[in-house]
Amino acid sequence: MTLNLLFFTITLKKRELTIEEEMHNQVVENLYEENRRKINSYMNQL
C-alpha cells in the first residue's frame, strides 16, 4: 500500500517472521491458553 501526503511517500509492507520468532510466538500462545484454561477451571470450582 502506498500513500502520498504532501510530497512524502509512505510504503507499508508486511514484515516476514523468522522461524525463531514464529516458534517463540507459538510457545507464548500455548502458555497463554494453558493459563486461561487453569483460570477457567479455578473459577468453575468456586
Rank of each mutant, 00 (worst) to 15 (best):
M23C: 07
Q45W: 02
L6S: 04
M43W: 04
N25F: 09
S41R: 13
T18H: 08
N25K: 08
V27L: 13
K14C: 07
N25T: 01
E34S: 02
L6N: 11
N4K: 00
Q45Y: 06
E33L: 14
N44C: 02
F7N: 11
R36Y: 15
V27G: 05
L46C: 05
M23Y: 10
Y42A: 13
L12I: 06
T2H: 01
L6K: 13
T18P: 07
E22T: 09
N25Q: 07
E20H: 06
N44A: 15
N44V: 09
E16N: 09
K38F: 13
R36A: 15
L3E: 11
E29M: 15
L46G: 04
V27N: 07
F8A: 14
R36C: 14
K14D: 07
N35W: 08
I39N: 02
E22R: 10
M43N: 14
V27F: 09
M23H: 12
L12K: 06
I10T: 01
Q45P: 01
T2C: 03
L12W: 03
F7Q: 08
Y32Q: 04
R36I: 15
L6E: 03
M43S: 09
S41K: 15
E33K: 15
Y42C: 03
L3R: 13
E29N: 11
K13A: 12
R36V: 14
Q45V: 00
H24M: 03
E33V: 10
Y42N: 07
T9A: 02
K13P: 01
T18M: 00
S41H: 14
I10F: 00
N4I: 12
Q26H: 03
E29W: 10
S41V: 06
V28I: 03
L12F: 03
M1A: 11
E22F: 05
N30P: 05
N40F: 00
E29Q: 12
L5Q: 09
Y42F: 14
T9V: 09
Y32I: 12
L6M: 08
E22A: 10
I19Q: 03
I39V: 04
L5F: 13
I10S: 01
N40K: 02
N25M: 09
V27C: 11
H24A: 14
N44D: 12
L17G: 08
L5G: 06
T18Q: 01
H24V: 11
L17A: 00
F7C: 06
L12S: 01
N35P: 00
E33S: 08
Y32H: 10
F7I: 01
T11D: 06
T18A: 01
M43A: 15
L31V: 02
E29G: 12
E29T: 12
L46N: 04
E21A: 13
T18N: 05
N25H: 10
R15L: 13
E33H: 13
M1W: 02
S41L: 12
N35V: 02
R37P: 00
V27K: 12
L5D: 10
T2S: 09
Q45L: 10
M1G: 11
E20W: 06
E20R: 12
M1L: 08
V28C: 07
M43P: 00
S41G: 04
E29A: 13
Q26Y: 11
L6Y: 10
S41A: 14
M23R: 11
N44G: 13
E33P: 05
E33M: 15
S41C: 11
E34L: 05
R37W: 08
